[in-house]
């Protein structure tokens, strides 16, 4: 593959980097990344990944744009209210970078479709941009079973956490074996979020994806990054793979996917 003149120009600030160069840029152009959830986390991640020249970007989301989304889901604009998030995303991404092939999955992920979605283009890396625990556990389990790396991210109020799963290493369930009991999940009134914080986390997730594709630096493998934006305090906690993990441990109890019940308050509006 040879970069066109336009591509050389467009990606020049990548190519200048010693760790990227023309070869690295070609890797990005050949890469396939799936973003599940085109919300607060998925929006910045999708924009940065498209800008970076990721060749194939899959977007899976079953929702429509609502006015209350716009406070943080920066890929959607006011005139988009009412149309599907996937279409809204595709419109922006293609304008941002025509090099990117945007594939849409206009549906929520469930146990019975997620495998097909991931296998559709044999994605190299998955970004969890969802806002609810059932989806997060589902993405984790699917990725572990299919041996796909993915980036987990979660934000609430002023805090965020993220870990990168690389097959063979710590998965989300190694840390949180089961879904939290219903009462432990914040109620609607508590579930606010400062929009920019979703931006920080989604951008970190995009960075992890890019590093993984390029094969540079250290990803958040076996460690969780936790930040508190009020204190503006970032730290990472080393977490090893758990031998008792129900999905990736020595004697896994989860060998096929199943859907979990959504907690009382549907948190998707704040994801």
């Amino acid at each position: 593959m040879n970069l066109t003149e336009e591509q050389i120009d467009r990606y020049s600030r990548h190519i200048i980097l010693k760790d990227v160069g023309g070869k690295g840029q070609e890797k990005l152009l050949n890469a396939k990344i799936l973003i599940v959830g085109a919300g607060g986390l998925g929006a910045p991640a999708a924009l940065y990944l498209a800008a970076a020249g990721i060749g194939t970007l899959g977007i899976a989301d079953g929702d429509k744009v609502e006015l209350s989304n716009l406070q943080r889901q920066i890929i959607h604009f006011t005139p988009d209210v009412g149309i599907s998030k996937t279409i809204s995303s595709k419109n922006k991404l293609e304008k941002l970078n025509p090099d990117v092939n945007v594939i849409l999955y206009d549906e929520r992920v469930y146990a019975d479709n997620i495998i097909d979605i991931i296998n559709d283009r044999d994605y190299d890396f998955i970004i969890d941009g969802t806002d609810n625990f059932p989806a997060k556990f589902l993405i984790n389990d699917a990725s572990v079973l299919l041996k796909k790396p993915f980036s987990h991210g979660g934000v609430l109020r002023f805090e965020g956490q993220t870990i990168t799963y690389i097959p063979g290493n710590t998965c989300y369930r190694c840390i949180f074996p089961e879904l939290p009991p219903k009462g432990a999940v914040p109620s609607c009134s508590e579930a606010g979020i400062l929009g920019a914080i979703a931006g920080i986390l989604g951008t970190i997730q995009a960075t992890e994806a890019l590093k993984y594709i390029l094969g540079i630096g250290d990803t958040l493998k076996n460690r969780m990054l936790i930040f508190d934006a009020l204190e503006m305090n970032f730290r990472t906690v080393d977490i090893g793979k758990s031998p008792d993990c129900p999905v990736c441990g020595n004697n896994p109890t989860i060998t096929e996917l199943k859907d979990y019940e959504q907690p009382v308050c549907d948190l998707k509006k704040q994801g």
Binding site: L3, I8, D9, S12, I15, I16, G21, G22, K23
Partner: peptide, 13 residues
């Protein structure tokens, strides 16, 4: 600059 450097780098690769 820096496109000339970028191009040089691509040839060097």
């Amino acid at each position: 600059c820096p496109l000339n450097f970028v191009k040089t780098k691509l040839v060097l690769e």
